[in-house]
């Protein structure tokens, strides 16, 4: 396609495009809802809301293994 033809098609496509009522790509489910945006609640009035408020977290020695959804996929991971 030459440049002029390409641009003609592109312009026509834009002018033919209606404005989507959702104004967003609604092909997939939500990334997250309104409840997601509340991190600043966690420090209101000088406290922490992580359950163990104000207690120190574990000391700096690494003793953790992944225990989330990655475990379901772990057996399938091939070396890069």
């Amino acid at each position: 396609m030459n440049k002029t033809a390409l641009l003609t098609v592109a312009l026509a496509s834009v002018l033919a495009a209606g404005v989507s009522t959702t104004a967003a790509a609604a092909e997939k489910e939500k990334c997250f809802g309104v409840a997601k945006a509340g991190q600043n609640d966690c420090k209101a009035n000088g406290h922490a809301c992580a359950g163990q408020a104000s207690k120190d977290m574990d000391p700096k020695e690494w003793k953790y293994v992944p225990a989330g959804t990655c475990v379901e996929m772990k057996g399938t991971l091939k070396a890069m």
Binding site: G46, H47, A48, C49, A53, S54, K55
Partner: peptide, 16 residues
Amino acid sequence: VAGFEWFDGTAVDTHG
């Protein structure tokens, strides 16, 4: 007004 909790002898303003 809100609630607080005790942690190791300190009253901590957790609102919890």
